[in-house]
Write a protein that binds this DNA or RNA. Structure first.
Lengths: 241, 241
DNA sequence: TGATTATGACTGACTGGTCAGTCATACTTT
DNA sequence: AAAGTATGACTGACCAGTCAGTCATAATCA
């Protein structure tokens, strides 16, 4: 049982059937955007993509602010400048919107996690670069909200946490592991046991995200400074910061 | 309209004023000893406390499983073996139940955080003891669920995150800071910058809690082993595990 | 002590408002 | 005109919170 109400699912006409049935895997057929330019993008398709994007953006704001159960589709519609019925032209139901939206919002993070760690210099420099980017692009942005949203709702949407694990966590862990190996090979990292728990490299980053959401107003946190100290810890002593 | 309720007997009068944290105060003298063999028929106060506890326990289960908004008070009542109206004899409304319940559940954690770190040995031993206790009493228990609940709902209940910050986080940070100072004094910890970010000591513990809730089924985590590696990191250990 | 009355804890049917999802109608584009 | 798209009033389930009435228990009385 999901958190939403169960509906009787009365017989329905075949009309709006599969607006977004694919939810499970592909991002979507319509929204894909111009990249797969099979058509010259008639005004219609463009408008559809726009509408879809507006709904997603509005949904993101609302879901982040109120959580899944407390979000009203009426509000999403209003924020998107669209009638409620329109949402159902693009998404089969509230849950589909939610899941697709989170997955869509995760794409940049997935790309970041999949990108090669820009090898070359020291492992330390690589980790520092990663931390810097994370603070800049995640901790202090909407992306952080999404992470918090997943932490909050993930347990109630198994397929979502699975997706997140597969696409973000697993990749991130693999990347971190690589970095650790590299660091060990270069003699920068001395504890090979770290390889078993790459989570330890990113744990402070997670804490920074959570802190930002819960306690920032009570006690601001200089995330970058914290990560810097953490990195010092990983690589052993270093000059006074 | 019509029928059913006849008898315009305006009985009602006062209702239990507040139902605040007290509710069941002093049973005076009676109660306690009145216990009869198998039937726990003690005084009213005892029964009231029991009922209250049942509601709190039921609420904890439900809120943890579904989150605040999606939890139905009907379900809480059913689980507690009580009528819905009864809940309102003890708590003013859903939110009051939620907040009181979380605070109540936090008490053991608060005590743990306030307890003196059992000084004497090495800072490392102290941290190890802390980690062990945390894994045993939090990560793998209901208490972990509560932490996750706070992370999930905290942003929507400012007074709750404030309470949590004041009673748990602030104390925990103070304790960690003390421990770090002690470690520095003993020459076990070499990076004084840690004092500015005691969060770093507990970050992996937080990650363990979150992991347990979201990914345990996909990829089990040996929390204690992870914390051990983390501790090695803090204290600059480097011998091959 | 047993009988009678007072108390207030407890109940659950009910109300009023909310909201996900539908669909007849209207509007646009081709 | 046909096909596709958008609308928003509407429906029906749903649920927090209420309250008139019940009944176990305590308090008082005979």
């Amino acid at each position: 049982m999901s958190t939403s109400r169960s509906k009787p699912k009365a017989g329905r006409t075949t009309r709006s059937a599969d607006a977004g049935t694919v939810a499970a895997t592909k991002p979507s057929k319509i929204a894909a955007s111009r990249t797969v330019a099979s058509k010259p993008l008639s005004g219609r398709a463009a408008k559809a993509a726009e509408r879809r994007a507006a709904i997603v953006a509005a949904g993101l704001d609302e879901f982040v602010a109120r959580g899944f159960a407390a979000t009203r589709l009426d509000d999403v519609a209003k924020r998107a400048g669209v009638a409620k019925g329109t949402i159902y032209l693009y998404f089969t139901d509230k849950e589909a919107l939610f899941q697709e939206l989170v997955r869509y919002a995760l794409v940049p993070l997935i790309e970041r996690m999949s990108a090669p760690p820009a090898a070359g210099g020291s492992a330390r420099a690589m980790l520092e670069g990663f931390a810097e980017g994370f603070v800049r692009d995640v901790v202090q942005t909407r992306r952080g909200d999404i992470l918090r949203l997943i932490i909050a709702e993930g347990a109630r949407f198994p397929s979502l946490s699975e997706f997140y694990y597969r696409e973000v966590v697993a990749r991130g862990m693999a990347g971190m592991r690589q970095l650790i190996e590299y660091g060990i090979a270069r003699g920068e990292i001395h504890n090979p046991a770290l390889l078993q728990f790459p989570q330890l490299l990113v744990a402070p980053a997670m804490v920074a995200v959570i802190w930002q959401g819960l306690f920032a107003r009570l006690s601001p946190l200089d995330a970058m400074a914290m990560l810097q100290v953490h990195i010092d810890l990983i690589f052993g002593e270093r000059r006074t910061a």
